[in-house]
Simulated scan of single mutants.
Amino acid sequence: MTAPAAPLPPMIDWGLAVALGSRLAGDGPVVSRAEADEAVAELRAGAHRSTGLVREFTGLDAPDGTAPILVVDRPGWVQANAEGFAVATRPMIEKIAASKPPSGIGLKVGAKVTGAEVGGLLGFLAGKVLGQFDPFHEPHGRLLLVAPNIVHVERELDVDPHDFRLWVCLHEETHRVQFTAVPWMREHLFSEIRAISDTVEPASFLEGGLERITEAIKAGRNGGSIVEMFSTPEQLEVIDRVTGMMSLLEGHADVVMDDVGPTVIPSVAQIRKKFTKRRQGVGALDRVLRRLLGLEAKMAQYRDGAHFVRSVVDRVGMDEFNAVWAGPENLPSKADLSDPDGWVKRVLA
């Protein structure tokens, strides 16, 4: 049994983050109790149905009984992601605390400020996310499907709700299968997070970060995300590796939902056309926020990852492509995404 983690200085007020994020997220579309119950039941059934469809198409076999499937509302998504952020940021907080443990009123004020910042971020994202695999939940992760957002988008796009719900489930269940059928993937993600934390120099973190963001703006690189602006060259190397991995996971899931979709979802072509247009953002402010928060890069992950997966599968077939899951060394780099033939030569030669 793993020993409980030692308590850390409360550098982020997670309670405030959850409360603020939940309030900012809102409740979502107005639905009757019967409509809500139907959507929840259909999403659960769609996720379970998708497991076999994903297995048949990809050859990935996830053990039964791992990584539960949860249908949540917006506050539920905020709570789950606050818990995930707490796990993800723990290595960095441990390093900062070991270097110069904060204390007193400064610690309390700082925790409130960071809690408010995290809450604002979660509140914004809680109205956008349709589903998500949470790898930080013990012991194997969990799948979250955000029912009010799915209902909102299916109404906004004016698509068949039953088809749209299964289409979303295919994408998100693919992520659950990826992490549970490939058990080293979860620990590899954690190791990359620790690698970023190892590069943090607590004493100069804020000062250096401010200097880097100023230089980025002056150099005309302010089209990047806040994360990239604050990152050191060492951290950017890790971010590039993570980009390759996440692009693979997102692109692989997009390929599954689009290639399996026509066999079980009659209106999949119409859904894809409308949804792709929606991914571009709905207004100027929305697009700016997406860019600053790194969501523009997320859109590129879908596109570049799907291109990589399709290119390799078309060339060597799904069985050979599945060598990508053999170990971290076989994951595509950021450069491989635009050079699938290079990956084939490196990994399959």
Rank of each mutant, 00 (worst) to 15 (best):
residue 168 V to Y: 02
residue 119 G to N: 01
residue 347 V to Q: 03
residue 67 A to T: 06
residue 302 Y to I: 06
residue 274 K to R: 14
residue 286 D to T: 01
residue 241 R to Q: 08
residue 108 K to C: 00
residue 37 D to F: 06
residue 335 A to K: 15
residue 209 G to W: 03
residue 241 R to D: 03
residue 246 M to R: 14
residue 181 A to I: 02
residue 216 A to T: 13
residue 185 M to P: 01
residue 341 D to G: 08
residue 183 P to H: 08
residue 189 L to K: 03
residue 69 I to C: 07
residue 132 Q to E: 13
residue 333 S to E: 00
residue 250 E to N: 06
residue 349 A to H: 13
residue 68 P to M: 09
residue 47 A to M: 10
residue 176 R to K: 11
residue 214 T to M: 09
residue 8 L to T: 05
residue 224 G to T: 10
residue 189 L to S: 09
residue 74 R to K: 06
residue 56 E to H: 15
residue 171 H to S: 05
residue 285 L to N: 13
residue 110 G to L: 01
residue 293 L to R: 04
residue 306 A to V: 09
residue 191 S to F: 06
residue 304 D to T: 02
residue 27 D to Q: 11
residue 201 E to I: 11
residue 101 P to L: 10
residue 163 D to Q: 05
residue 346 R to H: 08
residue 2 T to M: 14
residue 166 L to K: 01
residue 154 E to W: 08
residue 211 E to D: 03
residue 99 S to M: 01
residue 94 E to T: 14
residue 42 E to S: 10
residue 278 R to N: 07
residue 52 G to Q: 01
residue 188 H to K: 09
residue 105 I to T: 14
residue 303 R to G: 02
residue 82 A to H: 10
residue 176 R to G: 08
residue 125 L to T: 13
residue 138 E to L: 12
residue 129 V to Q: 07
residue 50 S to P: 12
residue 105 I to H: 12
residue 213 I to F: 11
residue 116 A to M: 02
residue 248 L to A: 09
residue 288 V to E: 15
residue 231 S to W: 10
residue 182 V to G: 01
residue 142 R to N: 03
residue 277 K to W: 09
residue 243 T to K: 11
residue 253 A to Q: 14
residue 69 I to D: 07
residue 283 G to K: 07
residue 283 G to L: 07
residue 138 E to F: 10
residue 79 Q to L: 15
residue 327 G to K: 03
residue 199 T to R: 15
residue 53 L to A: 04
residue 88 A to W: 05
residue 115 G to K: 00
residue 98 A to E: 03
residue 93 I to D: 01
residue 79 Q to C: 14
residue 280 Q to F: 13
residue 332 P to C: 01
residue 66 T to K: 08
residue 76 G to K: 05
residue 17 A to P: 00
residue 58 T to Y: 11
residue 254 D to V: 15
residue 321 F to I: 04
residue 327 G to C: 05
residue 10 P to V: 09
residue 13 D to A: 04
residue 18 V to K: 05
residue 57 F to K: 14
residue 326 A to M: 13
residue 280 Q to I: 13
residue 330 N to R: 15
residue 240 D to P: 06
residue 133 F to N: 02
residue 265 I to A: 05
residue 288 V to P: 07
residue 31 V to I: 12
residue 65 G to T: 06
